[in-house]
Amino acid sequence: MAGYRVVVGIKWVPNTQAVRFDPKTGTLIRQGVPAIINPQDLHAIEMALRLRDAYGGEVIVITMAPPPAVQGLEHAIGMGADRAILVTDRSFAGADTLATSYVLARAINKVEREIGRVDLAVFGQETIDSSTAHIGAQVASWLGWPYIYYVKQASLSNGSLRVVRQLEDVIEEYEAKLPAVISVLAKALRPRHVSLLNKLRARTERPIITWTNKDLGLDTRCVGLKGSPTIVAKVTYLPEVPRLKKVHKAENPREAARWLLKNLLSDEKTRDLIARALWGEGSA
């Protein structure tokens, strides 16, 4: 194959826009919530597709998820990815980021063995349901490849990668030897839409492979819940902040901001509430 082979990791996440409070019990309703591709991963797919369009090669989208995630893989192929791999197994359930990244890294190794050399692995910045931003870095560690995050632009030449990454106050340029791992800055690009012919291809050619642990042959002590050393020690819910329902008709934005600031800080109760919401009970 001429060009580069790029693997993109996407996560099939619950559509958090559809998760809401039950007005009677005040608890979260997650029931029947459908899933979507983690929105930031669309930017990762877009970056990979741009690299392929510029240099040739192929884009393989990969997800570790239960079987309904095929829908998301079809969407990715609809956007133009060449093929997709669903990594799924009962024993993978309950994984923390360590176990997830381990499976993904081993799956990338298997791509190298069975499909061919992988030049680049691309991830999203973070997920909307867990947002640890661990996966990219951990996959890079398992593979022993260099890792660059917050990537805004990427180009390839002669076996090396050049990227522009954007931090809060600086823009940096890096060069790294391939193979490498990057994660793409949130909202860096404009993800392309699903196209008719690509989606048709997803539905007819079905370029989607499924790998279970039979195919990967990983030690079950290293995957899923068993392979996950992270434990949730304690969960604290922040107190709900009651609204004061003040309405101010501002003359202009500057005046509005001044009014807001004055009100937030001059009222003792409001100041307390802000402090408690930020630092917990008893901090005022």
Binding site: N15, Q17, A18, R20, P23, K24, V33, P34, I36, K187, R190, P191
Partner: peptide, 25 residues
């Protein structure tokens, strides 16, 4: 009084649906 006994604002009604809002209008 339960919130269900007062009229909902439109945002509260829409929030009950499933959305995947495009970044582009």
């Amino acid at each position: 009084m339960s919130t269900l006994e007062k009229p909902f604002k439109i945002e509260d009604l829409l929030q009950r649906n499933i959305w995947d809002v495009d970044e582009e209008p």
